[in-house]
Amino acid sequence: MTIEEIRELIQTVCSTGVAELEVQRGENRVWIKRTAGVVTQEIHVPQHAPAASVAAAPAPMHIPPAPAAVTIAAPQAAPAPGDADLTDPTLEAVKSPIVGTFYEAPAPGADAFVHVGDPIKPGKVLCIIESMKLMNEIEAEISGTIVKRLVDNGQPVEYGETLYLVKPN
């Protein structure tokens, strides 16, 4: 299994909301697990507890390992999206002002409001957080570049949860 293939698997895990994935190909076996900020159903605990504490993740896709399988330990290769960057003091976090569901585009199938690498300026709509049929357009407050998106489309978000990291100009 090549590094490229592992990278693809990690992206698959990140983009689908699957909590844990184990794949064996020949003698190689990779196990990828998301460790933080993961919730795949629309579940919230009031009082704004971290969403992960009520994670009702779907059953992991589990492929039983062959007896002689070689394990490539992968958890370190699949950090929760953005963990490392959250501590980067040069980046600004765009946070959710309400509890709701994150949408990256105005309609299903439409192009996302912003992509990683896009330049933004104040007033630019970055995403929508829907809460009780209130569509909350989240706008950029600073100029800069989107360096990371931390939430998947359709995922629930908590009050104050970081949605994007921006490198200010």
Binding site: E42, P46, A56, G100, E130, M132
Partner: peptide, 21 residues
């Protein structure tokens, strides 16, 4: 919920909070 979200009890007895849907 105190925020106004709808609580739904599934058939297995577990509860979920609907914030949008």
């Amino acid at each position: 919920t105190p925020e106004g979200f709808l609580v739904v009890r599934r058939e297995d007895g577990t509860e979920m909070t609907v914030t949008a849907g």
